[in-house]
Design a protein around this nucleic acid. Sequence first.
DNA 1: CGAATAGTTAGACATATAGCTAACTATATT
DNA 2: AATATAGTTAGCTATATGTCTAACTATTCG
Lengths: 113, 113
Amino acid sequence: MSNYSPNLSLLFHALADPTRRAILARLAEAPARVTDLAGPTGLRLPTVMRHLAVLEEAGLLSTSKDGRTRTCALVPAALAPAQTWLDERRAAWEARLDRLEAFVTNATKEPEK
Amino acid sequence: MSNYSPNLSLLFHALADPTRRAILARLAEAPARVTDLAGPTGLRLPTVMRHLAVLEEAGLLSTSKDGRTRTCALVPAALAPAQTWLDERRAAWEARLDRLEAFVTNATKEPEK
DNA sequence: CGAATAGTTAGACATATAGCTAACTATATT
DNA sequence: AATATAGTTAGCTATATGTCTAACTATTCG
């Protein structure tokens, strides 16, 4: 619909993979090199690189290369759009439910089926 | 790593598609039949059904069939795991950043606390 | 009954995703 | 200079995803 938002799609897609969430968890402790991230996951370097590319496109991490090593670091603020979306939706949805319940409660006089 | 959670993957994946988010937005107004959901999206019924299956697997909506029509309704509480995950991560990540900044600041100026 | 309506199932198809190996570049280390 | 280390690029494979059409199963209605 008119509610199109490429950022949200990239963000949620990036977060939808357990390996990527594991990478983020690892980076929450400290910035790390690509090899450091590959170790715990048991994946090959090129595979990890793909995940890093997805995370970076979503804005969730930034990388910098120094000599032959690339260091990856979290970008905490990148979560904001997802949080905002969830907060807004949930509030709206629950408000709707509340109104519905109020309506049903008021209309308790009609049996059916 | 050990933080594996299939629910989160299903949830985030379900939310990663703009069409599915549009369906959720439509359902936020009121429960709707499958055909009602197909209309605005411009998609065919089978396509919409697939999206509904994804959303239902993620727990985001529930459906019930009455006669020949199926009605879909939101399950607002289903967003909770995603919200919790985001809140926790973001808090932890920013706390880490703060500690880092404090460290850098302390390293260049007089120590406090 | 017979036709219209709502949904479902099955299958085709193009693209995307997640993983791999092999081979290459660039930087340290010895 | 020779070798080891860190990363990158290219390309293969299998599976998943999003979309469609066609054909089938109810249900409802004139």
